[in-house]
């Protein structure tokens, strides 16, 4: 092997990726396509005028055989059409807004507290046990409690997003703060920086890249939270959509809901990466580039 790990050019990567996706849809299509038709011959009785069987007739009859029958799986075409019939934009908008608001509340509290915990070991020791207890709880475990407290309104959903993401955001921020190169602090101190200047001109920019990559993970966690929170109902939301359509055995709508969640998460992730490139451009540089 010439190089390890072995790699291929980007154009080939894209080509193979496209082939992979094509195979996925092809398999889906084959599984649901009525292509395995059989010709059955049935004997049909022909009644005479008095009601008794007068004669028989052979009838040739085509029967389609999908490997997986609806409602087990919908065809790609039906699923695609269903996407335009179920008010998808409203559901996407509802979930996305919840996530953005919940994420911002969580982050605006977790980041300052996390930085403070990084700087003050006593505060860190004080808060860490509570966070350790909160962190292992999956977001769905909070859903019943908040359903009792808040019902099925927006508060309930934001609360689930908040508790589901706060501990992670906090831990990522603390780690990012502790990971700041001590020599940068020493260098800045040596150059005459006071405590306040150390915080604003060194610690924050030094910790920012790691805080951001942590928050990117937190944003994805927020999605699992909102889908859990929307199980209990409400009018709109992708979680509500897939759970209500499940009750109606509307496979196509459930699939559309799932695909939407996936696409919206990918889009948000890409948007976050763009924001990162603007906020911490120096992390995307390589030697020799300018």
């Amino acid at each position: 092997m010439r190089r390890f790990p072995p790699t291929i050019p980007k154009s080939s990567r894209l080509l193979y990726g496209a082939i992979g996706i094509a195979i996925f849809f092809a398999v889906w299509w084959i599984l649901t396509a009525p292509m395995f038709t059989e010709v059955e011959t049935r004997r049909v009785a022909i009644d005479g005028p008095t009601g008794e069987v007068e004669s028989y007739k052979e009838v040739r009859h085509e029967v389609s055989r999908a490997i997986v029958n609806p409602p087990g799986l919908e065809t790609p075409g039906n699923t695609f059409r269903r996407a335009f019939e179920i008010g998808l934009p409203q559901h996407i908008l509802a979930s996305t807004l919840r996530i953005l608001i919940g994420f911002l509340i969580s982050v605006s509290l977790a980041v300052p507290l996390g930085i403070a915990m990084g700087l003050f070991p006593r505060l860190r020791a004080l808060v860490s046990p509570i966070v350790s207890l909160m962190r292992p709880l999956p977001s769905i475990a909070w859903v019943p409690l908040f359903a009792i407290w808040f019902g099925v309104d927006e508060t309930q959903k934001l609360a689930v997003i908040f508790v589901g993401s706060f501990a992670a955001a906090l831990i990522y921020t603390v780690e990012a703060t502790l990971k700041v190169d001590p020599d940068l602090i020493r260098a800045a101190t040596n150059l005459g920086a006071g405590r306040r200047q150390l915080l604003t001109r060194v610690l924050l920019p030094a910790a920012l890249p790691n805080i951001l990559s942590g928050l990117k993970v937190v944003l994805a966690i927020c999605w699992t939270c909102v889908i859990s929170a929307e199980i209990v109902g409400g009018q709109f939301g992708l979680g509500t959509l897939i759970w209500t359509k499940k009750e109606l055995s509307d496979t196509a709508a459930v699939l559309v809901g799932m695909a939407s969640i996936s696409v919206v998460v990918l889009v948000m992730d890409a948007a976050f990466t763009l924001a990162e490139r603007r906020l911490v451009p120096w992390m995307f540089l390589r030697r020799g580039a300018s």
């Binding site: 190169d181 020599d183 020493r186 260098a187 800045a188 040596n190 150059l191 060194v202 920019p205 911490v280």
Partner: peptide
């Protein structure tokens, strides 16, 4: 007493000019 470190300890978010001007700007 100005320190020069083995691992440079440059501020990665500042350009060459920004790094050099760090002390005076304080």
């Amino acid at each position: 007493c100005g320190m020069v470190f083995q691992n440079y300890a440059l501020f990665p978010w500042l350009t060459v000019r920004g790094n050099i001007a760090f002390g005076p700007r304080l």
